[in-house]
Design a protein around this nucleic acid. Sequence first.
DNA 1: TCGGGTTCATAGCTATATTCTATCACAATA
DNA 2: TATTGTGATAGAATATAGCTATGAACCCGA
Lengths: 319, 319
Amino acid sequence: MNPKPHPFTLRQLQYVVALADVLNFREAAERCYVSQPSLSAQLAQIERALGVRLFERDKRRVILTPAGRAFVRQARLILREADALVEIAHRFGDPFSATLHIGVIPTISPYLLPKLTPVLREAYPRLSIRWIEEKTTAILRDLHAGHLDAGLLSLETEVGDVDAEVIARDPFMLVLPRTHPLAATTDALQTEKLAGVTVFVLQEEHCFGEQARTLCAKTNAHIDAFRATSLTTLVQIVANGEGVTLIPAIAVAHEVTDPQLCVRAFAEPAPARTIALVWRKSYPFDAALREIADTMRRAYPRPVLDREPLASATGAGSE
Amino acid sequence: MNPKPHPFTLRQLQYVVALADVLNFREAAERCYVSQPSLSAQLAQIERALGVRLFERDKRRVILTPAGRAFVRQARLILREADALVEIAHRFGDPFSATLHIGVIPTISPYLLPKLTPVLREAYPRLSIRWIEEKTTAILRDLHAGHLDAGLLSLETEVGDVDAEVIARDPFMLVLPRTHPLAATTDALQTEKLAGVTVFVLQEEHCFGEQARTLCAKTNAHIDAFRATSLTTLVQIVANGEGVTLIPAIAVAHEVTDPQLCVRAFAEPAPARTIALVWRKSYPFDAALREIADTMRRAYPRPVLDREPLASATGAGSE
DNA sequence: TCGGGTTCATAGCTATATTCTATCACAATA
DNA sequence: TATTGTGATAGAATATAGCTATGAACCCGA
C-alpha cells in the first residue's frame, strides 16, 4: 500500500515548525533541545529531499517561502495527529480504557446483561463494552479470528483451548402448569421424576437446548418434537399445553410471569450450566479480563423466583 | 511548543499499518521492502516505547489488540496526512502552483489588474495571486518583512535593494478642459509649455503625486494647494475647474470619460513612470517571478485614448 | 574602519539506530 | 517424522543524527 518511505521524519517536521515559529535557527534548535547545526542539517536534508526551499534565509533574516507556509500548516496538523496517537496509545496502556467486543449467547444475554451493565459501567467508567449476541459456535469462531476479545457462554459445550473464568453456576429449573402432577409438592425434585414426562426443549443450535436434551435422555423424559427458538417461546408453549420445560434459573424472573405456571428446583446435585467468561490464551490483557470476570461474578444476581409456591425452595437450590 | 520527540517514527507507523493489513510479519516486511527481523524489531520497539501491545501473536496467528485497532486507525490517518504533505511540497516544486501575495500601488491597481488577471489565469492555471493594494512604502515594508512575495510599483521612487523586472513605461498625460489654451493644437506637447499653468496633483503619499510635483517644479508649473487622494478626484476637479492635471497613460481610458475634457501627450523625452515587478534579492522563486513579469509585460495594454482629438498622437506617445 | 557579537552553514567525528544475514524454537501439515 | 511456515533472536554492517569547532557574512558601536 505504501511502498516508499516518507522523505521526512516527524522530528524534522518538529524542526520545521519550531523554525517557522521563531524564525531563528539557534532559538528553534534550543526549543528542540538540539544544537543549531543539527537543526540546520536536518532542514537542509528535508529541503533537498523535497526539492523545495521552505525558508528563505539571507544571513540576516529567515522567512517562510510560499511553499514553506503551506508545508508548515500541514506539518502542524500532522504533529497534532501524532500527539493524538500518543494519547490513544497511552489511554490503552490502561486496558480499562479500551472498547471490548464480547460475544454472549442468547440464553444469557437478555437476563444477565441488564444486571451486569450498570455495575461494569460504574466499576470501569472508561471501559466500553460492545456486546455481540451469537450462538456458542459463532462466538468461538469470531473469538479465534480475533473479532471478539472475549465470550460469555456456558462451559458445558466444548469451548476448545481458551482461558476461562467461571462467573456462576446456573441451575436448571422445571417450568410446569400448576395443574401438572409434578407441581403437587414443594420439595426439591429428583431428576428421576422426569421419566415419561413430555418436555419441550430449545433448538439444538442453542447450547442450552443441547444440555436439556442430554438431561432428558439420561432421565428417560419424552422430548417433544417441537424445537423452540427462544426461552420465551418455550414457556409460552408450556403455559398453553400440557408439557413441561427446562429453563436456566437466571431466566425465571423474566420469563415465568404467567400465574398458571409454577417453577420447581431440582435436588442436588441439580443439573446446571456453568456461565463463564472465556478468551484466547494469547490475549494480552488477560489480567484485565480476569478482573472484569471477577466483577461480573460479584454482580451476578441471586435469581428472584417470586412465582409461588416454590420461591424459597428454588432460592436455596440456586446456589 | 513540542519539546519532547515522538516515541515513534513515520516508518514505524508504516510497518504497523502494513502488518495490520496482512497480519503476517514476512509479508508485511516484503511490502515495506525490509527484512522480516527488521519489522519485528521496529514493532517490538514501538510497543516497548508505548508500553502497549498492539498485536497479539501466538506463533500461528497475528491479530490486533483493542489498543492496536485504535492505534492503526489513527496511524492510517497520519500517514494519509503525511502523503498529503509530500503532495503539497511537490506541488510547490512547481512554483506556479503557489499562492503569491503581491502588493500593488493604487495608481496601477484599478487600471492594470483587470487586464492582467485573465491573462495570468490562463498562463498559470494553478497559480493563485492575492493582490494587496497599498502605497509604495507599505509594500516595501511588507515585502522585506516576508508578508509579500512581490510588489508591482513604480521604479521612480526609491525601492532599495531588490530585484526588479520592468513591465512597462507609463507616460504622463495632460488632462485639460477643451477650452484650455493648451488644448488648441494636436502636436505632442513640450513640457516647457506647462510653465505658469495651474496643475492639480495627488497627495505626496502616492508615488505618482510625488513624481508629478517634481515635474511641475522642473517646468515652473503652478501646483494647486489641493491634494487629491485619487486619480478619479483629480480628473473631476479639472472637469469642473480651470486647471489641468497629469495622469498616467494607463489610467486615461478609465478616468477620462467627460466629453468636456481632452488629453494630450508630451513630446519625447516624455515624462513617464516605470512600472516594474520587484522582489527581495533572496526570494527563492525569482525565476518564476521573472517569467510572470514577462507575461505581464506582454499582457500590458496599449493605452486606448479614445478622447478626441488626440487619440492617435497619444497612442504613439505611449510606447 | 575595525573589532565584538550576531547570523546560518560546513566539516569531521562519534554514538546510536536501523538494517541485514543467519539461525532458533515452535506449530501445522504431509 | 520430515517439511514448511511462523515470529523471535544474535551479531555484524551500515546509515543516521547528533555533537563540537569553525567559517563566512552581516550588524553595530567605538
